[in-house]
Simulated assay, not measured.
Amino acid sequence: MANAPVSPHLTPLPTSSPPKHGTVPSKQVIFSPKHQTLRRSSSLSPLASSLALPINVDYLRREFGSDGVSFEGIGDSCVVKMRMENGSAASLMLPGGLITSYKPLMWHGGTVEVLHTTVEEGPNGEAVVRGGVSMGLSCVGEGGSSSSWSSDKWALLNLRGSAEKYIQLELVSVGPKDMVEVKCLVTLQQDLLGSEIVITNPGSSSLELSGSVITHLTVSTPDAAYAVGLQGSSYRRRQPLVSDFSIVPPDFAEEKTLGSWARKGFDGLFPASWDRRDGNADIDDELAEEGEEDDDCAQMTEKMCRIYTDPPRQLTIMDRGRRNSVVLRRSGFDELYVFSPGSDHEWYGKYAYVCVGPAAMLKPVILGPGGVWTGAQYLYNPNL
């Protein structure tokens, strides 16, 4: 376990996109105040307004709308649409905070969707959206007190940037605040989509943070998908994250070694559920299998779920069926979550995806009193 670094501000510093051969240049793009601001709330609090259900879409349009940002009401939710001048676009849902779309500009001059989402009917007849990019966090304090988030209660606090340079949404968590304060920055650039979470511990005792950013990347089939850059990285086999936004094929629950934990839900991800008090010692032993990646271009054909404990800062997911790739870069997180549903599903269908994301699962983050921790994922587009 490592002490979390203290961040003096809320500004992410993603590097510009890496060249196609995978080398990340040292030049950084800093989101400074001198950049043009689209709209900024001055009188009425956007937090108070956007919390009302149904969300006040007219207020959001009036306060934050611009040539690069628009708002569309869908039931009790609102879709925030961002679009750069070069055509790259992304969408995010409020209050859920789920990033449902990222369409970067491609080598052929058009845009292509790289995130995988599904829309299903909920228990009350409502539309339920899953997949995309979401965050799941767990916080444990002294005495075992805990709290958790699954990216389902966020409000728009601020919006910065311009369609020419970048668009940045600042979200604030509206869940329980008895332990921590949580903010999230979602940033769209011409060749980047960033997700940064900032956690502040206002208390007088240390906290233990666990969780991950989970990205469902759409592929033609996992058989045509390859993880590039993991050779030599150690991993441990663990259960896939099951949250409100995750997509897990039903046949996973049919397997003996997967059934018990696939139904545990979100709590099955975190260390408190690994202490064998649930009577699943045999399953825990099997899932704790360790290994080392021996292929620098690993095909993701088989069903697998791994946490890489010493991964490189950058990973490329290449899909030969769609002829594109996505580069993932992480910051703040020491581990990497990789999940494949396997290739025994329909091409370009519901389970044609792979999951990746920076994580703090096996080695939680220790956040001291008054400390601030920042963890981030950046999706780069190398296809220009």
Rank of each mutant, 00 (worst) to 15 (best):
R62I: 05
E120H: 13
K103D: 02
P104Q: 04
S147E: 14
I74L: 00
M84Y: 08
L94M: 14
G144P: 13
K81Q: 06
G110P: 00
K103V: 08
V128C: 06
V128N: 01
S151V: 09
G122Q: 07
V79A: 15
L98N: 02
D76N: 15
R130L: 00
F64K: 08
V119H: 05
G122P: 11
Y59H: 09
G65F: 05
N158C: 15
L137Y: 05
E121L: 13
L98W: 04
P104T: 08
G73N: 03
L159K: 11
S70F: 00
L105Q: 12
M93D: 02
S91M: 11
L157E: 10
S88T: 05
L60K: 11
L98S: 02
R160A: 05
G75Q: 04
G141L: 01
G132L: 01
S151M: 11
E126T: 11
G144N: 10
N124D: 12
M135N: 13
G87K: 05
Y102K: 02
V80W: 08
G110K: 04
N124S: 11
R62P: 00
G75I: 01
L94D: 02
E142Y: 15
Y59L: 09
T118F: 04
T117I: 03
V57Y: 07
A155Y: 01
N158M: 11
S145P: 07
E126K: 07
T117A: 07
L94F: 02
D76A: 08
G136E: 13
W154C: 00
S91F: 01
